[in-house]
Each structure stands twice: as C-alpha cells, then as structure tokens.
Write a protein that binds this DNA or RNA. Structure first.
Length: 185
DNA sequence: GGCCCGATACTCT
DNA sequence: GAGTATCGGGCCC
C-alpha cells in the first residue's frame, strides 16, 4: 500500500527500440497477499501469478479479458505475493509512438488527447508496448529497459485514496479497502 | 459525461 | 464451463 502511494508522480519509463516512452504515474492499486481476496494470489501460487511470489522490484504482467495486458510492480519479500497495479500514466516522452501503439482514434477521426492515451491499465500497457515478454523483468537491474525514475514527491493533499476498481463480488473488507490511489486533477 | 454490450482467450475456487 | 484487476462503440443526455 505504501509503494502504491509513493509511486504516484514518479516516472515510468520503457526504452523500446532505443527510444524512451515515459509517463508520470497517475493511478495505482495495491494487491496484498493471499488473504486479499481481490489479489491474483488469493488461491495460492499458480503458473500465472508465480512472479508475485518472487523477489520485489520485478514486473508482473498478466493477460486478461482475452485481449489485454496489465502491468504490476512486485513488492514485499520473496514468498509473500503482493504487487502494485499501474492503472494510469500521463504521457511525457515518446507521445506520438504511444499514440501509434494504441492504434486508437476517436469515432470522428480526431486524435485522442494525450491525457487519455494511457488512462487505464490495459491502455497503459499498450501505449508503452508492455506484454508477456516483460513478465518477470527486473525493474531495478542496471540495464533494465523498463523501470521507474524519481520525478517528484506529491503533497498528501494531491493524493486521493478510494476502493479498487473492478472488484465485482469480492467480499468486504477487500472490496472497500481504499487501496486505489490517484493524483487529484 | 453516462449506460449497455460485445469482443476475446486465458485461467483454474 | 464460468469468470475475468478491460476497452471501445453505439447510443443517449
């Protein structure tokens, strides 16, 4: 939960084909251990969630809804499955490449605003070119192509906490735990 | 902005 | 076979 809050305002970078694609992290969510019934590790270790059981500082990238990738930073010690889902960034570098990777345009054919290029977890992954090839990637390695840079600290008043998105039938208290964090607009 | 719905394929309570 | 940490299009407001 602490990492989810502190990642806000920092810069997520993917160096792709030698070019930096980067954005300021604008929304995150914490998923904390097997007891958290919203966490992919709620039923114990599986092939899909194995990276979450590994050491912290690695990328957990999963596939969902038949067509989307989502990117998480693994947190906590090895053996304790926890991660932070990155749900939105504000693009700042490589914006035109992100627009092309998203391949989306508005129904009227006009370009999508920068702020909406990566304002969802699957949109974020698509805009940065993140997929299963980066599952397990060491975000802290010296030669890492995907990593987080320190950008700026946010004042507590700039952060909004609320319940996580898409909890469906997840029981309380997990459904309502305020483990989603976003930057106040 | 909102609501509804279909797409799509992987995971495994 | 059911469920899914989602998105975009169509529609309405």
């Amino acid at each position: 939960v602490l990492v989810a809050r502190e990642l806000l305002g920092q810069r997520l970078v993917h160096v792709r084909h030698g070019q930096r694609l980067a954005g300021l992290i604008a929304e995150t969510e914490a998923y904390v251990g097997e007891e958290d019934l919203a966490c992919h590790a709620r039923a114990g270790p599986t092939a899909r969630n194995s990276v979450m059981y590994g050491p912290p500082g690695h990328a957990y990238v999963y596939f969902t809804y038949g067509m989307h990738w989502c990117f998480n930073c693994v947190t906590e010690r090895g053996g304790f499955p926890a991660a932070v889902l990155l749900r939105a960034i504000l693009p700042v570098e490589g914006i035109e490449v992100m627009r092309r990777l998203r391949g989306a345009s508005r129904p009227d054919g006009r370009r999508i605003a920068d702020a909406h290029l990566a304002d969802g977890p699957a949109k974020l992954a698509q805009a940065l070119g993140i997929d299963k090839q980066l599952n397990g990637h060491d975000l802290c390695a010296r030669e890492a192509s995907l990593f987080v840079e320190r950008a700026r600290a946010l004042a507590p008043a700039q952060v909004v906490a609320g319940p996580r998105v898409g909890m469906g039938s997840t029981p309380e208290p997990w459904r309502g735990n305020p483990w989603n964090f976003r930057i106040l607009e």
